[in-house]
Design a protein around this nucleic acid. Structure first.
Lengths: 208, 208, 208, 208
DNA sequence: AATGAATGAGCGTTCATTCAT
DNA sequence: TATGAATGAACGCTCATTCAT
């Protein structure tokens, strides 16, 4: 009985180690270019062991993507809960950017691999994206109802916000020198938040 | 003299046929999952013929990506030239969305494959993206100088706009049922344009 | 403990089986005309297994040639050690011929493939040939010092002997009907030994 | 009529150019590693033109080998005709070495490719080798009949001489630094001739 | 007759997966 | 349960040969 615990723990540890290695390798090299040999080495297990924990290579990807979207969703939820000031989009944007930067590998895997594995995403990605959109939608709708935001279509606004979150993460991943460890995008985030709140146009004075 | 033409034309046709097939197959299946056999069949040539026109499989991808960014850049330039009204962001957004929808395969290949082939992108993608950003930046700066836009950092605004163009194309590609041939995103585009122009917040009347 | 042995033995057996098949196939068909498929079939392993034991096809050739020269060198050493009578070149020649006949495939591979793979031979063949020549040179020098042989340049004599050993093996391989399993060249070997010892010319009586 | 001549001449020139290029390329890279593209480029003709002059790649090799053995045979005949002094084997050997050195490519192609194309050699190589042996045999027999040479088996002696000729050419090709343009093997040739004439053993004085 | 683009069988090699230990 | 050697289908690519021009 006591002997079971370590084994089981070890099992879970192997499982997690594989997923962590996979997330990083898939993000760095892509799914196809990552061999099971590399996965095994990076996870410090034998190649055959991978197939005791996952049916095949693809289901490792499935697990990474699945957990990935869950994580991203949960983090978004947490962020929105923390935001008290509906006008303080700057804080939200900075938060999101830091968060997506922290999950850079996850975002990269999800965005680059999902399009080619729709069967993995049907049940998961779409659901998670829908949830994220719903959460944002509710957030926006509340803002509208309370008179902070203009009465736009909350669903569309939510989609725009999602695009911005993912897009800024994308830029973070690919358009910057990867050496920059983090916050170089803060000005961009601030501009983005400013535009999102106030728009580009000069406000027409109400009296004119 | 006249006899030369058909051969040359045929040559170009093969080259183009390969690139067109490649663009579609790479977008549909991904680069790695597309075999040279499939590429040959889709181009109606023998497998060996591929390697008369391109050094290897990767240089087919390079050509697709290279031409892809050029096309996207040129189309963006053309759009911006046509836009006369700096306040008519709605027209611009609709234009862009229709255009990126038209080049959906291109965008998909460029966005999903570039991260894993940095050597293909260093000289090309970065240059093209920089050009697109510069063009947008000039557009924005003019809008600011003429008093239409608020005096934000034009470079950051340009990046935000690029994110939005690419992002909306992404959504178009992956979050919608692919059967929808086109204009389902018009409302989204209009909302996006509205937010970009006017922001989310209710304008505080200057007199209040 | 006992369970390990069969695996290890089996490993070595695969490695050796591949080398044996390769030696024979390379000798029979040449290196280029031998496919890895044939190699695998002749070794009774899967094609992929070849590449677990050797980095690529060429390193199989390298191993064959390397082991080949070692074998030929060792056999020559053994022969020379056994020869007690410096005047009994007939015995040496017969010995050599039988030996090279026994290693006919090896000689053929080494002689026909080495010229086109100098990178394989630089460290090995040249060294082994040098060693063989040195051994023969020492043998000859001893013969000279003891007054059996005429005071010729031992290095040159050694080279002549090597040429004869390899050349007679060559003839054995290619100028005879391959059905003759062996000793048809004994008269030739005897003549060769006679010439090597006594020369072609009629001896001028010392008194004349 | 007059127009034919240049064409025909050009034909022959193309034919010869191909054979010359082939001889050198086959000797340098081996038959299999030489592509028809390389052959065409080295011959300054189009790839397709090769197949107007030769049925296929193999028949180019056949022509090279065929002409090669003829050349070697004719040169040997010429040398033997020139040799007046049956005891002057040194002159013969030096002659042969210079000659084989001059035909180094030819010898290399014939020796390395023949073993793997017996069908090319059955009618040609064997015949030529037989002729060479016969010529040498007659030479030796004459030397024996006139009392210069010891009464050995002339056929075997002829084979030994052939081995020496080919073997010394082999050494010339592969055991020396290829930069040495020529006569570095003269001492070896002299030693070889000395041994061939006088043998290794110290002559026992007839009176002892 | 000369060309060289097109061909496609066949090559060496990879790698996800299996299974005896 | 964990291992890693063995597997073989499938890959990207080569190149001798053909044939329309």
């Amino acid at each position: 009985m006591l002997l079971h615990r370590p084994t089981q723990t070890s099992d879970q540890k192997i499982h997690s180690r594989i997923l962590e290695s996979a997330e990083h390798l898939f993000a760095t090299q892509g799914y196809e270019r990552t061999t099971t040999k590399q996965l095994a080495e990076a996870s410090h297990v034998a190649e055959g062991t991978l197939f005791r924990h996952f049916e095949n290579k693809k289901s490792i990807l499935a697990a990474v993507i699945s957990e990935g979207w869950n994580t991203l969703l949960n983090d978004l939820l947490a962020t929105l809960c923390e935001v008290s000031d509906y006008q303080d989009m700057v804080a939200l944007m900075r938060h999101r950017i830091k968060d997506f930067h922290h999950h850079a590998d996850l975002v990269k895997v999800c965005l680059t691999q999902s399009p080619f594995h729709p069967e993995l995403c049907e049940p998961l990605q779409k659901e998670r994206l829908r949830q994220m959109q719903e959460v944002l939608e509710a957030f926006v709708q509340t803002g509208i109802d309370r008179g902070f935001y203009r009465p736009l279509d909350a669903a569309n606004v939510a989609q725009v916000m999602l695009i911005l979150f993912l897009g800024i993460s994308w830029i973070d991943n690919h358009w910057l020198n990867p050496s920059s460890s983090a916050p170089s995008q803060v000005p961009l985030a601030d501009t983005l938040a400013d535009i999102l709140m106030n728009g580009l146009l000069v406000h027409q004075p109400a009296t004119s």
